[in-house]
Design a protein around this nucleic acid. Sequence first.
RNA 1: GGAGAGAUGGGUGAGUGGCUGAAACCAGCAGUUUGCUAAACUGCCGUACCUCUAAAGGGUACCGGGGGUUCGAAUCCCCCUCUCUCCGCCA
Length: 425
Amino acid sequence: MLQIPVLREQTDLVLAGLQKRNFPNAAQEIQALLDLDQKRRSLQTERDELLGRANALAKEIGGLMKSGQKDQAEALKAETAELKSRTKTLDEEVQHLEHALQQGLYKVPNIPHSSVPAGRSAEDNEVVLEHGSIPQLPEGAQPHWELIKQYDIIDFELGIKITGAGFPVYKGQGARLQRALINFFLDEAMKAGYTEVQPPIVVNEASGYGTGQLPDKEGQMYHATADNLYLIPTAEVPITNLYRDEIIAEGKLPIKHVGYTPCFRREAGSWGADVRGLNRLHQFDKVEIVQIQAPEKSYEALEDMSQYIQGLLQKLELPYRVLRLCGGDMGFTSALTYDMEVFSAAQGRWLEVSSVSNFETYQANRLKLRQRTEGGKPQLLHTLNGSALALPRIVAALLENNQTPDGIKLPKALHSYLGFEMITK
RNA sequence: GGAGAGAUGGGUGAGUGGCUGAAACCAGCAGUUUGCUAAACUGCCGUACCUCUAAAGGGUACCGGGGGUUCGAAUCCCCCUCUCUCCGCCA
């Protein structure tokens, strides 16, 4: 979440940012928070003064008791009793205000970076670049949901039987392709300096709040209520939370991690015409890269991550484009997001396969993730992450774009991982 | 799941009602000494908020989390969480 001092001292900047996001009633909402903050501070000052007096009295009483001056001690006790009841009331008010402020701040999204275009929806996203050419498909080319049946590599009906819609079963060459992609992505990331981690795929509530899934996206995560644990929607959650409540030494930066996990998304209310086949699932595999960086270097890191992800797409020989998301389409916690989309030729659509974001201090503030700086107070770090990559839509594009009458040709980069070069019947 | 023990600063670990935001040691930082390194010595060495300020300073809170007793709680009481040991169950 945003820091209160930023709200206080750079109000105009915050308001301009919220406007870019089309955040409703920004001025009133922020003013309400500033009022809460003002009131909290004045009450805290008052409370602390009273507590200070009570502490001094307690010491005095101790001294009097020791020297046997009981009557005088009793007189002071009476005074403390009154202080106590006043501080109690004040303390309750302060706590109430702090809570209200916290709740209010949870509802304020991150401030977009200056390069983020204004806009309301996906249509206003800015195409930064396009790479590769659109493949010419043979006569009678099929969308991937037909191909997976023909080659018997992914089975949605079986998934429906054992779990439900959106939980496909990968079989044979399909399963092998999944495993090849995961290994390829992990190996590439390690070559690029990311340290692999294998985190839990269920997380507690504190982790959900740490990276901002809670309370904003409460309904989007599967919730194991018996233990109050959440199935992760992305490896970002456990990996970034590895560093919750940490103060990192300057020399340890940047921290770079890669992790493969299944991801679980309820996708409540988002099913429609464009979600056939692998386009949208409740469970899917993803390799995620995470960086924790010093504030002055985070945008450099974001560009590196973007380049890295583009390199993967190039090795997979997929045509792709890079979008800079507009204020209205960007995630709640992000300051700048690039989406990478591949062209899935039989559907004739761009499919989002990666989203790489700089959260600046928004997550770090919740996480209390800071760096130790020389001679100064600990300073909030910047967190970044990106998919590298999400598998299902990559698979969709690979199948659709590379179909031939003889089978589906797979890119060279994967051959050694697959043990075959083409999916055949 | 049952029984018991425990949770203190970066680490080890003292502390059972006031002089303890917290000993000591280790690690770390700065300095003295030194041909270099090492050793020795000296000093510094938690976080958040409030207040004040040019800077310094001052205040409050925090000893797993929450509540209570008390003029006063790391210390006493209650609840919760977690860890360890033993038993049971299981991979």
